[in-house]
């Protein structure tokens, strides 16, 4: 077993444990913090794949913005911080069957697909390759631009929703 395999197993198991705790702990803030831990684990797996840009973006966006907003939203609901109700509903077995089915189909797909392997040695400047392929017409420029337009629409939409109506003044 090489060092990177050991690190992969460490990070992957830490991610899974944290993800399990996200859905099982009763304190909402603790759940959000475990979510942060699990996102950190995913970022470290990106590091192992030499995808440094993906790893840092994972931290900037998911931990720096999204997780903090989740924690913020949860803090505003201080009264219901501690969930005292039962953790399972009566139809839990149905959900479990669905989850097992999904897990089985997803893992079969992953098993059957021929995944491209990471080339040995230095892969070059990954950020440069990524940046160029995002604006290359023969690669990803169309999805990239569509995503940007979508984000702009969401931005304007949220401003329109938050804007006080003229009549109420």
């Amino acid at each position: 077993m090489t060092a990177s395999q050991i690190f992969f197993l460490l990070f992957a198991s830490a991610t899974l444990v944290a993800a399990y705790l996200v859905v099982t702990v009763r304190n909402l803030i603790h759940a959000a913090l475990w979510l942060v831990a699990s996102l950190l684990g995913i970022a470290s797996i990106f590091v192992l794949l030499d995808a440094s840009f993906m790893a840092t973006v994972e931290i900037v966006l998911y931990i720096g913005a999204i997780a903090i907003l989740i924690v913020f939203a949860v803090m505003l609901t201080r009264r219901v911080m501690e969930d005292v109700g039962p953790q399972r509903t009566n139809t839990w077995w149905f959900g479990a069957i669905l989850a097992i089915l999904f897990f089985a189909s997803a893992s079969t797909l992953i098993w059957l697909t021929q995944w491209p392997t990471l080339p040995e040695g230095d892969v070059g400047n990954t950020v440069l390759i990524l940046g160029k392929s995002l604006v290359d017409p023969s690669k990803y420029v169309v999805p990239f631009e569509i995503a940007s337009v979508l984000l702009i629409v969401a931005l304007i939409g949220s401003i329109a929703v938050a804007l006080p109506s003229k009549q109420s003044e």
Binding site: F53, T56, V57, I59, V60, I63, G64, V127
Partner: peptide, 15 residues
Amino acid sequence: NVGILYSVAVGAIGT
């Protein structure tokens, strides 16, 4: 090769 972005990312954890 993502030094600047890394510094922002790690700083965000301080928040």
